[in-house]
Design a protein around this nucleic acid. Structure first.
Length: 890
DNA sequence: CTGTTGTGCAA
DNA sequence: TATTGCACAACAG
């Protein structure tokens, strides 16, 4: 073995923190914590580790208090501004990071990081070690030598004696001399006024040291001589200030600076929290466990063996591989299973490419697995189970017993998180970078179907999915318990998974002819509007482009501008409505825009999404998207089908029941206000709901002090706006804007409201308080949503957080209630053996496809299960409508 | 071809 | 300067 010199790396932590902070101006995580300095610092650390793999290292920080330099010179660093307020909270995180990397960290009271570094560098260099100082600070150049070099990772430069000499005109020993003369404005080191670095280098090159220069100052000519005479003492003081202490008694030897193995779990948690997803991936890219036992199942004997393993295991995880992201088009290509961490199987069923190995038959495998998959008592785990349920249902297997969906569990743990995808969960919770789909199937136009992926590759990809899912379960289950989400998870969210799968499976019938006719009419109207608009403008332009509209209205026609957007002048409804009085073009543009919107988003888009086999639209209900617990709908979004305008309502006529049936729409009346009445325990609201009054009218009575009969339409409208405003935490400004009144007046309405409904005011404050105390708020069923921004120093962010603290419990409790109702209705319909099918959910409304013969029974059942979903201090009223299309059902 | 912006639909 | 979503067309890189 060759005897490599021992190496030591000394990282100037404090200097990097500052440099990173100023180099990266804007970076923060979704919780409002600034992360710019942390990010820069981490990058530096990772770079040093990656490129130098140090075995001995110290990260050195400045100690909190003043250093000894302050004692010799009170003005030292006096001009330094206080640490920026968004940097302060980053410091402890950086120290956590260093700890998680398991690296030695040092700081010493009374001394700066540079002194510690100088001491350690000199000491170890004297012992024959090769020392690298990682810093960008020129002060440290004074300790550079043959054994000590300096590395600036941000500039990617290494400084040895030669590089130092180039800048300071001599060996590293000249550094302090030059700095003593030139001073340093950032540290408030005075030096000699009028002498900068260039002059100082010249003088030192000639005289060697400050002392020598001062002794022979008469050899210097002109004004500089006077300066030197006057400020000589100051130069000597400066020299003391810039000279680093290199003889501190640290009592630290080489062995104490050995680097440890990084704590993967801690790092993962930190990177996750900081939302350093890219770094997370990079760091863990190499750390995939190669010991995983992933096997393909190719023979009946192997299948039997697998099934025996699956039967023995208390819980199994599984995952399907298919040809499409859309489960209703997807063909099954393979299934994977895991029973314990690190071991998983993949059964290829439908890989077909030239030279593909012999695979077991699909029918055979599914028949053998059917008893297990359909057994409700066999506990199963899956990631995004809804997808697998649908794929297998399409393949003829009704999977039961899926009692843990890792995606849903992760969502309950943090509903505000951006992604609950397996890759990010594996990274965040397991510190593991999983094989990306694109790595086995390619991406973009090169992407191939999973059926064409080589079986060997498919095994490592698919088996990993089942394995990781099982490992995620092991992490997530205790987390759910910790967060007290178990009941909500097992009694509401998990039952809902299968129900949503069923709703997507059913889909809703849509008549393409209705949409086609509508589209044709719109086409004509749009063409006419376009002609008018171009004529009024005197030129032809793209009405769909806000930018071009801006050019025409504000530059060509010289109409008054309204608000600005990031890229130009706003042309939104509000602006155009104001412009309508100035010029007839504005109203036409508005008409054109809303019609084009309806046509593009609905009448033209929906027919394309009608499934060719079923004649129905199968939307996707997403259970892990919203921060509040609501569902969302996509591909297409059926939760925003128009209803307000006449044109819009006609789109609803295209949504129709199955042959021989009707559509039944059941919606909760004023559910969020009822929840407010319940949670705030506000008697006036409770009494009003108990009596079945018009709540907005009643609110108007209270705040305007008039009798119910005397409430004008205008007053009711205003009360309604206030009622909704309360749910969203609205202020006087926005109320004024939406009512078109002045702020004072709006404030007086709000005052009157809280005067008459004091418990509501208490409730709102209690929610803000709760958020400040716990950093989260809760719904009726204990669903939690974190609101870390509640402590943000930024007023805008904090106000936003406070509004969320009010809105989440109300919107979220409504979501809880309708989810419970969905489970109750679904199960009740099943027990009754009815053919009525739940097909849509629109936040406070459920839509059913009902055979005509079952109508009355269904109506009663649905009403009962919805109204009795939870018991509140106010009744839950459900309005039910029935019709031959969705519009009529309202 | 992909991500962002402005806009607008729903509860 | 009112909450939560999704999707479209235009546009920038």
């Amino acid at each position: 073995m060759t005897d490599q010199p021992k190496r030591l790396y000394l990282i100037d932590g404090s200097s990097y923190i500052y440099r990173a902070y100023f180099a990266i101006r804007h970076l923060s995580n979704s919780k409002g914590l600034a992360t710019n300095a942390i990010f820069g610092f981490t990058n530096m650390l990772l770079k040093v580790m990656r490129e130098h793999a140090p075995d001995h290292l110290a990260v050195v920080f400045d100690a909190r208090g003043p250093s000894f330099r302050k004692e010799i010179y009170p003005e030292y660093k006096a001009n330094r501004a206080a640490m920026p307020e968004d940097l302060v909270p980053q410091i402890p995180v950086i120290k956590d990071l260093v700890r998680a990397f398991n690296l030695p960290a040092l700081e010493l009271e009374g001394f700066e990081a540079d002194d510690i570094i100088a001491t350690l560098a000199k000491k170890h260099a004297a012992q024959g070690l090769e020392v690298t100082i990682v810093s960008g600070d020129k002060d440290l150049m004074q300790v550079v030598s043959e054994q000590i070099r300096m590395l600036d990772t941000m500039k990617d430069k290494v400084y040895g004696p030669a590089e130092v000499a180039e800048r300071f005109g001599g060996g590293p020993d000249k550094v302090v001399e030059v700095q003593a003369l030139a001073g340093d404005s950032s540290d408030n080191i005075p030096g000699v006024p009028g002498i900068g670095e260039k002059t100082a280098v010249k003088l030192i090159a000639e005289f060697g040291t400050v002392e020598e220069l001062l002794a022979r100052f008469d050899e210097v000519k002109g004004k500089m001589r006077d300066k030197l005479r006057e400020f000589g003492e100051q130069a000597l003081l400066s020299k003391r200030l810039v000279t680093l202490k290199d003889d501190l008694d640290l009592g630290i030897d080489y062995d104490a600076l050995a680097t440890g193995e990084p704590d993967r779990a801690a790092l993962t948690a930190l990177f996750g929290e900081l939302e350093f997803h890219k770094l997370q991936q990079e760091f863990f890219a190499e750390s995939r466990d190669r010991n995983d036992d992933y096997r393909g199942v190719f023979t009946e004997a192997e299948l039997d063996q697998l099934i025996r393993e699956l039967e023995k295991a208390p819980r199994i995880s599984f995952d399907t591989e298919t040809t499409s992201l859309d489960p209703l088009c997807a063909e099954l290509v393979g299934i994977s299973f895991a029973v314990q961490a690190g071991a998983a199987w993949y059964i290829p069923l439908g890989h077909h490419y030239l030279g593909a190995p012999e695979q077991l038959g699909r029918e055979l495998v599914l028949e053998r697995l059917r008893p297990l998959l359909e057994d409700p008592r066999k506990s199963k785990i899956a990631q995004n189970a809804k997808y697998d349920l649908l794929v297998l249902r399409r393949a003829g297997v009704e999977v039961r017993g899926v009692d843990f969906d890792t995606m849903v569990a992760s969502y309950l743990g943090n509903p505000a998180a951006k992604s609950h995808g397996m890759d990010s969960l594996a990274a965040d919770l397991l510190g593991r970078r999983t094989i990306a789909f694109s790595e086995v199937a390619g991406s973009g136009k090169n992407q191939i179907s999973f059926a064409e992926v080589e079986v060997d590759k498919a095994i490592s990809y698919a088996a990993e999915d089942a394995d990781v899912t099982l490992q995620l379960f092991e992490k997530l289950e205790p987390m759910l318990k910790e967060a007290e989400q178990e009941k909500l998870f097992h009694e509401v969210e998990m039952p809902l998974v299968g129900i949503l799968a069923d709703m997507e499976w059913q889909g809703v019938r849509v008549d393409p002819q209705v949409l086609g006719t509508l589209s044709g009419e719109m086409e004509k109207k749009l063409a006419a509007l376009e002609r008018d608009i171009h004529e009024l403008a005197g030129c032809s332009f793209n009405i769909g482009s806000p930018k071009q509209i801006g050019e025409v209205l504000f530059e060509k026609l010289k109409l008054p501008r309204g608000r600005k957007t990031k890229t130009g002048w706003s042309t939104d409804v509000e602006v155009l409505q104001n412009l309508a009085e100035e010029h007839p073009i504005a109203a036409r543009i508005l008409d054109h825009r809303s019609l084009a919107k309806l046509k593009g988003t609905y009448t033209d888009a929906l027919p394309k999404l009608i499934h060719p086999d079923t004649g129905r639209i199968h939307t996707s209900f997403n259970q892990t998207v919203t921060a509040t617990g609501r569902l969302s709908s996509s591909d297409p979004n059926l939760q925003n089908i128009p209803i307000r305008s006449e044109e819009g309502r006609r789109i609803r006529e295209a949504f129709i029941p199955a042959e021989g049936g009707v559509l039944l729409a059941a919606d909760y009346s004023q559910i969020e206000l009822r929840i407010l009445a319940h949670l705030a325990d506000e008697e006036m609201l409770q009494e009003s709901f108990a009596r079945g009054e018009d709540i907005h009218r009643r609110t108007a009575c209270e705040i305007f002090g008039v009798f119910p009969e005397m409430v004008s339409d205008e007053q009711r409208r205003q009360a309604k706006t206030i009622n909704f405003g309360v749910l969203y935490g609205m202020g006087a400004f926005s109320l004024a804007k939406s009512l078109g009144i002045d702020r004072k007046k709006a404030q007086s309405f709000i005052d009157a409201y809280f005067e008459r409904l004091p418990r509501v005011a208490d409730f709102l404050e209690a929610r803000r308080e709760e958020a400040r105390k716990n950093k989260y708020v809760q719904t009726l069923l204990g669903r939690r949503c974190a609101i870390p921004e509640i402590d943000s120093p930024n007023q805008g962010i904090r106000s936003y957080a406070e509004r969320n603290a009010i809105n989440y419990p109300l919107q979220g409790s409504a979501a809880d209630i309708i989810k419970v109702a969905m489970v109750r209705v679904f199960e009740s319909l099943g027990r009754a053996g009815m053919k009525t099918r739940m097909v849509l959910q629109v936040h406070d409304e459920l839509v059913f496809d009902v055979p005509e013969s079952e109508l009355e029974k269904a109506r009663e059942l649905i009403r009962r299960e919805m109204e009795e979903a939870v018991k509140l201090k106010v009744p839950l009223d459900v309005d039910i409508g029935v019709g031959k299309n969705w519009r009529e059902a309202h």
